[in-house]
Design a binder for these strands. Sequence first.
DNA 1: AATTGGCGCCAAAGCGCCTTGAATGTTGAG
DNA 2: CTCAACATTCAAGGCGCTTTGGCGCCAATT
Lengths: 354, 354
Amino acid sequence: MHLQSALNIPGSDMDLKQLSSQLGLSQTTVSRALNDYPEVNENTRQRVKRAAVKFNYRPNARATGLATGRAKAIGHVIPMNSTEVFNPIFAEFIAGASQTYSKRGYELLLTMAPSGTEDSIYRQIASRKSVDGIIVHAPRINDSRITLLQELALPFVIHGRDTANKSEYAWIDINNRSAFFQATKLLIDLGHTDIALINGSEALSFACRRRSGYLDALQQADLAIDGDLMFEGDLTEGNGYSAATELLTRPRQPTAFLVSSYTGALGVRRAIHNAGLKMGADVSVVIHDDDLSYFHNSGDVPQFTSTRSSVKQAGTLAAEMLLSIIENPTAQLPTRLLEANLIIGASTGRRHHR
Amino acid sequence: MHLQSALNIPGSDMDLKQLSSQLGLSQTTVSRALNDYPEVNENTRQRVKRAAVKFNYRPNARATGLATGRAKAIGHVIPMNSTEVFNPIFAEFIAGASQTYSKRGYELLLTMAPSGTEDSIYRQIASRKSVDGIIVHAPRINDSRITLLQELALPFVIHGRDTANKSEYAWIDINNRSAFFQATKLLIDLGHTDIALINGSEALSFACRRRSGYLDALQQADLAIDGDLMFEGDLTEGNGYSAATELLTRPRQPTAFLVSSYTGALGVRRAIHNAGLKMGADVSVVIHDDDLSYFHNSGDVPQFTSTRSSVKQAGTLAAEMLLSIIENPTAQLPTRLLEANLIIGASTGRRHHR
DNA sequence: AATTGGCGCCAAAGCGCCTTGAATGTTGAG
DNA sequence: CTCAACATTCAAGGCGCTTTGGCGCCAATT
């Protein structure tokens, strides 16, 4: 290694040994200077830091990890079934989380877990030790992953909750029950009595809680509960369309729809148009709006009346929770319940008598 | 370490030293047995592999990485500007790529790069050495990242192309020019002469190429080119809606729309409905369809006529290309051009004279 | 019987970093 | 002037794995 290659040539990164020999210092001192240990002279520290920048030195992540025993990385595991590959909600959540990670010097490892292989994937993540903790997406009812992760002693935060599991674990969730209770109540107060629910798959925890909010509101208003008004499934445009189309061809049409996602609502809107009806006048729609940057239900008067809660923010908070667990393992496991905001848009109105 | 903890207790993973002492073998032999080196007796190999499964042994990824000098991980860098956080297209592409990675024993590291910080992020990735190569998303015209990555000597594959850059680099792209040429020609053949283009941001390479396909077809048919018929911007539902609404309030309405994405087209559809027109009869629409699993433009007769090409498949192929570059660094850099399929749906028809 | 050459296995070095324990230089109190 | 106390710096060991170079051993060759 000659002067030539020690200069600021892109791509020719140094390692610690080279940097310290350049500086005429030991690796120990250089390492400590860079990591802000107190036992280094301030002048030396500055000299070292300047050199590090000049030579574009950054510690090898693998070596640091080996030496410290911490990967400085978080895993996100995305459940994947055949119909739903990569829900935009996960993407937005991850975008939020990644802000926290980069701020705190962590990397983000993404793993797709096809259903059926989940167990072995979590085990593998734990034993390969390439992450310090993980975020679990889309919990199911009685989710076996929680027990597994507790056994594996891998720190984790769940985006959502498994209300069937009474053990202690860290989670962040929105108050789905309250959100859908309020949304349903709004529709009832507007005079609607036939309110359809177009929900996500009710094997998932969030969808169950939304349904129970919906049912509670109906019950409280002494309205009949009609199983035929309740749909569940992947929240795609197509499914929203076919569910709504089916409902609108019935002799007794529902006059209101409660839709669990923006994308599903786009299909419902199409069905309403196709039936020659006007949304907000003939038919009311309330959606849950995850406030995805890519599907913005905005404007002075938003298109859809919604219960809104930012998944991106949830991602940021979840990441902070997880890092705090990792850096402070003895503290109590944090939980966080976010409230959704009811926002009146153009898609709701008093019930229309025909 | 006693018998107790050497048994199959979840979370109590062994390391190589423990495993080999359990087996009464040296670490060398155990390592070689597991990695299928030839100089190990077949019986021994079987014995080792069985024990590894039994004790849930998996090599520490960091240690392996340090020793081999290869991270066995690929980085995906997602450009992020304030309006667009995490395009579902990236998500779907990543879902495709991750299949390849897990099959080949690689991990996937995700990094968000806020615009402005990109340079330093790529440098950091290169010098931290936590990945063996990266995938670059959303290339721009004259994209500085290409030169940078070439200097950093970090293997990469670009999803898209920078046609302004004549140097050699690996890319995978769809034939955007041909796709939009064909789509435009279809509309012209149906009698349309006022064809609007609602495009993605033309700072991005793909959008430019689509526009030039559109222009070529117009030119070839001796149709006038009207700059007022061309829109560009983030391909959101909202932007599609406002662009189409604006166009439909003009004295001379376009009778056909070419829309660069499914989500944008949902907004265009809304605008058409709102104007009291019928898609496929009064107004024709052709879209580019990335075949996202979450936004499926399917059915016996798809809703939208489209040029379709699966981004998920592109992701799978891109990953394979990148791994082949990494494992065979001296070979010529691969490139791959995918053709889109023109699929006739319900949104196009002969021009309607009013 | 002596030599060769695989085969099967092992000890030890090294990947790049952090960290422990010790060594050196400096200062101030006694 | 001596010695303790502090401020700086360093050499060396270790993180868990792969890999180089050898070392026995036994069958085959001469």
